[in-house]
Write a protein that binds this DNA or RNA. Structure first.
Lengths: 219, 219
DNA sequence: ACTCATTACGGGCCGCGTAATTATT
DNA sequence: AATAATTACGCGGCCCGTAATGAGT
């Protein structure tokens, strides 16, 4: 199986017409036909149902199309990565940071980059919401983002940089006031950064019960 | 760029020795050398640092290795899928279900399969914990699992089948007893299935405050 | 009769293997 | 001197394009 085979498969599946597909692939029909036939043999599966007047995906073909496209997209990803590496460790990396999690990691990163890759310019960009940063990543207008564990998306690579324990700290006797308003999700996200400096008059042991690492447990 | 190029790259990167790599690839060194050189040219990046006595990955090479392996693994995934399709819509699909989420989806699925793919035998397997099911999926001893949104893993494909709202229902005046013991994560997972049948004597409006869809919000 | 996919066939390119070369330990 | 990677070179196969065939509307 070759990459060109998958490209041919994808284009024919899109056009459902060997002539147009061949044109799109800058080749003539016969080799394309042969290529598809060969791919079908190597996979042991018939991909298209063809009568001389019409072309249609078989059931097997439609089930294989998505994985095939996946391979193709990752191949171009490799090429793009290589290109950007070749373009040089001589460029600009655009980084978004959202929330408190980046406050420890960022200075470490910038210092390390400045030392080992002096050609790299870091362009930092504060982002209030995690999702705007993720969207920009997908668009390609950002290269990297620091964020608290969002729902990981298949198109993005993520790595855990730091595990934080975030405490809920309240004045004595005020828990009853807060608990009916703040259920966990909104509570943690809204106040996490503000929790960085905790005034001394707030008692800590009081709330140790509800303190739990954000690191999502089972589930 | 061809798949064989990536295989060659991966094997040489693993062996760091053209001779052994060539043997592993069932070919002689010279063509392998040429292949790597050609790949390097097509990517515009030098992958290996070679002096006649030693071979080492360059920085670019090490950064490209993982994506390259990813492509390769997905290629074999395509081949495996094709093989299993070719083996026939005539086989056994092993399905695990954990938790209450599957109770609506399962009968719908089994009925549909029995009608449209009568050759397929479904082998159902109850799983108490989501993670045992996921592990079995990765091993290959299961084909499919129904589970409530776990941390999605890159190696697994997932799809949202159903969005549930799960209510916390308690007898009147007992909230104070439960709140210090059950913080959100453990509470939901432990009692979710039991929540299916709610005795009528439990009041519902009482807890509507803390009721929230499990569908993970932002973060 | 016309369109579109397949088969037939000849030519060129690419990749492999063997043999020779170079460099390093 | 010996090992290991690269260059040199001849051969075979695969893939492409053009031409001819067949099938269905």
């Amino acid at each position: 199986m070759e990459i060109k085979d998958l490209e041919a498969f994808a284009v024919v599946a899109e056009e459902l017409h060997f002539g147009r597909a061949a044109a799109k692939l800058h080749m003539s029909q016969p080799p394309l036909s042969a290529r598809i036939k060969q791919l079908e043999q190597s996979l042991g599966v018939q991909l298209f149902e063809r009568s001389t007047r019409s072309v249609a995906l078989t059931d097997a073909g439609s089930r294989l199309l998505i994985p095939a496209r996946k391979v193709l997209s990752q191949v171009v990803a490799v090429q793009n990565l290589a290109e950007s590496i070749a373009a040089g460790d001589q460029g600009r990396v655009r980084i978004a940071f959202a929330g408190a999690s980046s406050q420890r990691a960022l200075p470490i990163l910038t210092r390390a980059v400045r030392e080992s890759h002096p050609g790299i310019e870091l362009q930092l960009e504060s982002q209030t919401y995690v999702y705007t940063a993720l969207d920009k990543l997908l668009e390609g207008s950002l290269d990297l983002a620091f964020a608290r564990l969002p729902t990981p998306q298949a198109e993005l690579e993520s790595r855990v940089v730091e595990v934080e324990k975030i405490l809920c700290a309240l004045p004595e006797g005020t828990r009853e006031l807060v608990s009916p308003v703040c259920h966990w999700p909104s509570f943690t996200t809204r106040t996490s950064s503000a929790c960085r400096q905790i005034p001394a008059r707030f008692s800590r042991p009081q709330c140790s019960r509800s303190a739990s690492p954000l690191d999502s447990g089972p589930g």
